[in-house]
C-alpha cells in the first residue's frame, strides 16, 4: 500500500514543483515541449558505441535543474526507479558483444560494455529531460501546448480528465485496500477472488461516478465539446530558448566537444 501512497505523492510533488516561479517555469510550454523533443531525438540519434559525444548533452538537464530550482536528488531517484527495463535489455550487450573496442593500456574494453554504458547514458538523459519537462511545466500546460501544436482535442481532453480523476480514484482504491488489509489476517483475503471483487467494486463506483460527472456537465450546458479559455503567448524569450538549445544540440551532435578538449589537453601536456 505504501506504493500507492508514494506514487500519488510523486505525482503531487512533481505538480508542486511546476508551481514555482522561475524563468524556466515562466516559459511558454510549447517552447519547452519542442526543445525536449529535439533533445531526445539528438541524443538517441548517436551511434550505439558513442559515449564521449553524449557527455556534453548533460548540460541541458543540469542547466534546467539549476535554473528551474528542481531537486536533483529527487529526480535522480526517479530515474533509478525507472531504470530496470533498459538495464536488463542493455546488460546483454556486454555478454553478446565481446570484441575489444577500446584499448586502454593493458585493459581492453569490449564493444558490449561501451554500448551498455552508452545505453545507460542515453537512458539518464532522455528520462531526465521528460521529468524536467513535467516538473517545470505541469501537465495542464503540457496538454495545452499539445493542443496548440495540433494534437486532437479529444485526446487532450482525455488526458486532462484522466489526470483530474487520478487523485480521486486512487484515493478510492486506497480506501478499499485499507479496508481489505485491516480484515485480512496472515495474508488471507489477498488472493485472486477478493482482488477481482475489489477491482469490480472500484469499477462499478467508477462507472457511477462517470454518470454523475456527466450529469454535472450537462447541467452546465455541455454539448460534447470542451472549451478552454487560456491564452498562450509565444514571446521572444520562448523563441530564444527553443532555437538556442536546438542549435546547441545540433552543434554537439556533429561536433565532438570532449575530443577537441582532450586533444587540446594531451597536445599541451608533454
Amino acid at each position: 500500500m505504501a506504493t500507492i501512497e508514494s506514487s500519488l505523492l510523486n505525482i503531487g510533488y512533481l505538480e508542486t514543483l511546476s508551481y514555482q516561479q522561475t524563468p524556466l517555469h515562466r516559459l511558454d510550454p510549447r517552447a519547452k515541449l519542442l526543445t525536449t523533443l529535439v533533445f531526445i531525438i539528438a541524443v538517441v540519434s548517436f551511434g550505439k558505441y558513442e559515449i564521449t559525444g553524449l557527455i556534453p548533452f548533460m548540460i541541458y538537464p543540469v542547466a534546467l535543474i539549476a535554473v528551474g530550482n528542481l531537486p536533483p536528488g529527487y529526480l535522480a531517484r526517479k530515474i533509478l526507479l525507472a531504470a530496470p527495463f533498459a538495464f536488463f535489455i542493455g546488460i546483454f550487450n556486454p555478454l553478446l558483444d565481446r570484441a575489444v573496442l577500446v584499448q586502454l593500456g593493458p585493459v581492453g574494453l569490449s564493444g558490449g560494455w561501451v554500448s551498455f554504458a552508452s545505453i545507460m547514458i542515453r537512458f539518464t538523459l532522455t528520462v531526465s529531460a521528460a521529468l524536467i519537462l513535467i516538473a517545470s511545466t505541469g501537465l495542464n500546460a503540457v496538454c495545452l501546448a499539445l493542443e496548440r501544436l495540433g494534437a486532437p482535442t479529444g485526446f487532450v481532453v482525455q488526458l486532462l480528465f484522466l489526470y483530474r480523476y487520478i487523485f480521486v480514484l486512487t484515493d478510492e482504491a486506497l480506501r478499499l485496500m485499507r479496508a481489505r488489509s485491516l480484515r485480512s489476517f496472515q495474508g488471507r483475503g489477498l488472493g485472486f477472488k477478493v482482488f477481482t471483487y475489489l477491482i469490480g467494486q472500484l469499477l462499478l463506483r467508477t462507472l457511477a461516478r462517470a454518470q454523475r460527472i456527466h450529469l454535472a456537465m450537462r447541467s452546465r450546458g455541455f454539448d460534447g465539446t470542451i472549451r478552454l479559455l487560456r491564452p498562450l503567448e509565444f514571446h521572444l524569450q520562448d523563441a530564444v530558448f527553443f532555437l538556442g538549445w536546438s542549435s546547441l544540440f545540433l552543434l554537439l551532435r556533429w561536433y565532438n566537444l570532449p575530443h577537441q578538449l582532450g586533444h587540446l589537453l594531451t597536445g599541451l601536456a608533454p
Binding site: 484522466l162 483530474r164 480514484l169 482504491a173 486506497l174 472500484l202 467508477t206 462517470a210 460527472i213 456537465m217
Partner: peptide, 16 residues
C-alpha cells in the same frame, strides 16, 4: 467524455 477520463484513472488506480 467523462467515462473515458474516469476509466483511465480507474486503470491507474486498479494497477495499484
Amino acid at each position: 467524455v467523462p467515462l473515458m477520463g474516469v476509466l483511465g484513472a480507474f486503470i491507474f488506480a486498479a494497477q495499484m
